[in-house]
Amino acid sequence: MELGFIILVVAILCVIAVVRELKAQNMFGVAFAAISALVFGFFSVATLYWELIHPLFQS
């Protein structure tokens, strides 16, 4: 479960990087940070779901 929270922090940092690179008008940086945010965000949500929500519905 700790891994999910760590990856979520990384995803939030990637979103901050997207905003910062948009202000600097660095489109390569925006693309790289956006792809990273999507990937890390997906894995953090999936990990947290699997550890927290999924066991509640198992019988």
Rank of each mutant, 00 (worst) to 15 (best):
V39S: 06
V15P: 07
M1H: 08
V45I: 12
I12M: 09
L52G: 00
I6R: 15
M27Y: 14
S59N: 09
V45A: 02
L13G: 13
A24Q: 13
L22N: 02
F57P: 00
R20F: 13
F40H: 07
Q25G: 02
L13E: 13
E51T: 03
V30C: 09
V18I: 11
R20T: 02
A46V: 13
G41D: 03
M1L: 08
V15K: 13
A24E: 09
W50M: 12
L52I: 03
V10Y: 14
L48W: 06
I12R: 13
E2V: 15
I35D: 02
I12F: 14
F28L: 12
R20I: 08
V9W: 15
E2I: 14
I16F: 05
A24Y: 08
F42Y: 14
F5N: 13
A33H: 07
W50I: 11
Q58V: 00
I35W: 12
A37V: 06
V30E: 07
Q25R: 05
M1T: 01
S36P: 05
G4V: 02
I53F: 02
C14M: 10
A46W: 15
R20A: 10
K23E: 07
I6C: 12
K23Q: 09
V30S: 07
F57V: 01
I12P: 06
L3K: 09
A37I: 01
A31C: 15
L56W: 05
V18W: 08
V18E: 07
M27N: 09
V45Q: 01
I6D: 13
A17Q: 09
S44R: 06
M27A: 10
Y49K: 09
E2R: 15
I16G: 01
F32M: 10
S44E: 06
S59M: 10
F32G: 00
I53S: 01
R20L: 00
L38I: 15
L38E: 01
P55Q: 01
V19W: 07
A24H: 12
L8I: 03
F57H: 02
S36L: 15
L56P: 03
V15S: 11
A17K: 11
S59T: 07
G41R: 13
F43Q: 03
S36T: 11
C14D: 10
L3T: 07
I35A: 15
I7D: 05
A17L: 10
M1N: 06
G41V: 05
A31D: 02
V45Y: 01
S44H: 06
A24T: 11
Q25N: 05
G41H: 09
E51R: 07
G41L: 02
A46S: 11
M1Y: 00
V19H: 08
F57G: 02
N26P: 08
T47C: 01
V9T: 15
R20N: 05
P55H: 07
N26W: 11
S59V: 07
V45K: 10
N26S: 11
V30P: 04
M27F: 15
M27G: 00
Q25H: 02
L56F: 10
A31G: 14
G29C: 10
I16P: 06
V45E: 05
I6Q: 14
Q58A: 09
F42K: 14
A31L: 15
G4I: 04
V30I: 13
V18S: 08
